[in-house]
Amino acid sequence: MTQPAHTAIDVAALLSDLQRRIHTNTTQSGSTSALTREELRVLHEALHEVELTRVISAHWPIQGVGLVGRIVAALQKITRRLLRWYINPIVEQQNAFNDATLRALRLMLDVFAEQTAALPPPPQTPPMAPRSDRAITAETAAHAQAHLAANEPTFDMWENDLRVDEAQRAHIAIVHAHWPLPVDRPRDHLANVVHKLQRRLLQWYINPVTQHMNACNRAIHISLVHLATYMVALRVAQPLDHIRTRHDA
């Protein structure tokens, strides 16, 4: 199979570009809050981890020590060569997806930072003064609460929406090469013995691939978590900082 159509990423250029954008974001945008900078730093570290793990390889060095070790290594190399037609295209497709994911993450980082830079500065006075109604009593509080709530502007819970799948995503980010083999019919027991033997004989080949995939999946998952956090920080960090400063004063 030919290499899937995607452009290879220049790691050094990407990191340099990322550093430049971080510098720009934290010194020129409207979100210069130290609170935002911290979230951006964490996000940067997470993206760096994606960069380090995004390339999955099915061809790492195989070495054997001693005569037996060398024979085993030779057999493994032959096996790998024989299965290359099967495994390599899978890995290449995964790598293409990982590249695309990293690009998307970088793009989102840019867009959010640019949008926030365009926001007006937060107001110096409370956006909505606390309301007071001296006629309220404990007996009428629930009624008053319902009345006040009806006038409260809608709260768009997009932050919750961003987080809702995090636990599930963390769970499915782990690729297993050794899942429980099902037994639906009695003869499955025999088939499973054969499958377990095959799996055992190939674990030197398959397990490192899944470990690499898991490292990358985990890095992507963590990046998405931190990206969501950063998006919220861009919206709330500076206003919160202002409110705290005003309180402290």
Binding site: P127, A129, F155, M157, V236, P239, I243, R244, H247
Partner: peptide, 13 residues
């Protein structure tokens, strides 16, 4: 998140 939004809307900590 609710407390955060409350602070942002009411403007007091």
């Amino acid at each position: 998140r609710y407390v955060q939004e409350y602070i942002l809307r009411r403007g007091r900590l």
